[in-house]
């Protein structure tokens, strides 16, 4: 796999887990939500989204179910498992630690 997607993979997983953690949601809606919440800053391609979803499902972080949408169509809805929630918590903590660290450096260096 190219290194670009490697770099993004962890982050994308984190975002998916976070969004799916709010309640059952299908793939299209996940992509939309990421776009909306990031105020159009982040666009997720289908080519990245679905492999990530399947990977997370295989690892047992997500589970899926076919269900009717509000428009009455069948779609595959994903929810976060307990294991996924633990993983999310761990990754969030890690993210905060790292990003906090980066923020600190940026601030400190900027002041001096």
């Amino acid at each position: 796999m190219p290194s670009k997607s490697d770099l993004l993979q962890g982050t994308l997983d984190l975002l998916i887990l976070k969004i799916a953690g709010l309640g059952p949601i299908h793939g299209y809606a996940i992509a939309q939500r990421i776009r909306q919440v990031s105020r159009e800053a982040l666009h997720v391609q289908q080519g990245s989204l679905y492999p990530a979803l399947y990977r997370l499902e295989e690892r047992g972080y997500l589970q899926s179910q076919w269900r009717e949408t509000e428009q009455g169509r069948m779609a595959k809805f994903y929810t976060v498992t307990k294991k996924g929630a633990r993983q999310l918590a761990a990754e969030c903590a890690e993210w905060e630690r790292v990003s906090g660290g980066i923020a600190l450096i940026l601030e400190e260096v900027g002041q001096s």
Binding site: Q45, Q46, G47, Y50, P51, A52, L53, Y54, R55, E58, R59
Partner: peptide, 21 residues
């Protein structure tokens, strides 16, 4: 256009699944 090749997406999805195994 936005979707890219649908088969390509499927390939990648499949790969992700196999890779996990």
């Amino acid at each position: 256009m936005e979707f890219g090749g649908i088969e390509q997406v499927k390939d990648e999805a499949r790969e992700a699944r196999m890779a996990a195994h």
